[in-house]
Amino acid sequence: MRKNKILIACFVAPVVITLALMYVYPVVRTVLMSFFRVESLTAPTETWSFYGLQNYFTILHNSSFKTSMVNMMLIWLVGGVITLALSMIMAVILTSGIRGKKFFRAAIYLPNIISAVALATMWRQYVFNYDYGLLNDMLKLIGLDKFQWMGSDTKFWSMLAAFIFGSVGYYMLIYISGIEGIPQDLYEAATLDGAGKVRQFFSITMPLLKGILKTSITFWSINTTTFFLWTKMFSPVNTEGSTIVPVVYLYDTVFGGKGVVHRDAGAGAAVGVVLTIIIVAVYTITNVLIKDNDLEY
């Protein structure tokens, strides 16, 4: 038994040490940094000066940060509802025995294997472009005026639409795996009892997918809080208020931007802490609201 303990310790130690160095240390340092006035991300700790909660007050009073939070919440809520609903609908359709299931599944998942940079460029330049974009060509075809899809008031929604397009396939696969795990005899029994497809969806599929839904919401929340690349691609030269999200605000705060030399790693750390708290809160609330252990199959 003694030998076993040593063996266990030997096996576990590399993981624990790596985790402590690569995860715990940065987290602790970031949390500490958020209470200090620090200019550079890698400034030695002796140059830090205690700042209390001032970094948090600074970001919470900053209108760009507030805008970024509103944008993030819109992505989470509006984008989340649309993405998860579309994914579930497509998953249900593809598991209902339609022809060409494999083709449609691959086609819908395809955007996930294309680089997001290429995908965003395609949307910006070939779909939303005012002069030669696909959407305006279609409007012209039916005799309507061209529309500025990438204006200050519309750019956020264009970006969100493109992001949803790229995300649906991923969540659809998750739902498909969940639906395929539901025993077929439940559906057969329901069919014998006279339940239609819609009734089967709401009475069998939905309740038995609670666990999958909870996982999807958690994944979506993480995707939303770490939303970065799409904003960068839709504001290629410099950050714009219409597309800014907290991680981009954090990035600009810590590293500066075009023509901006001011840096504030302490405020950036505070943004990171706030985002972490949000993810933990969403995860906790989801766990409380969605109980998936009341059904067994």
Binding site: H61, S63, S64, T67, N238, G241, S242, I244
Partner: peptide
């Protein structure tokens, strides 16, 4: 602090 919003305006 409101530079991003100013840019949009």
């Amino acid at each position: 602090p409101a530079w991003q919003a100013m840019r949009d305006e």
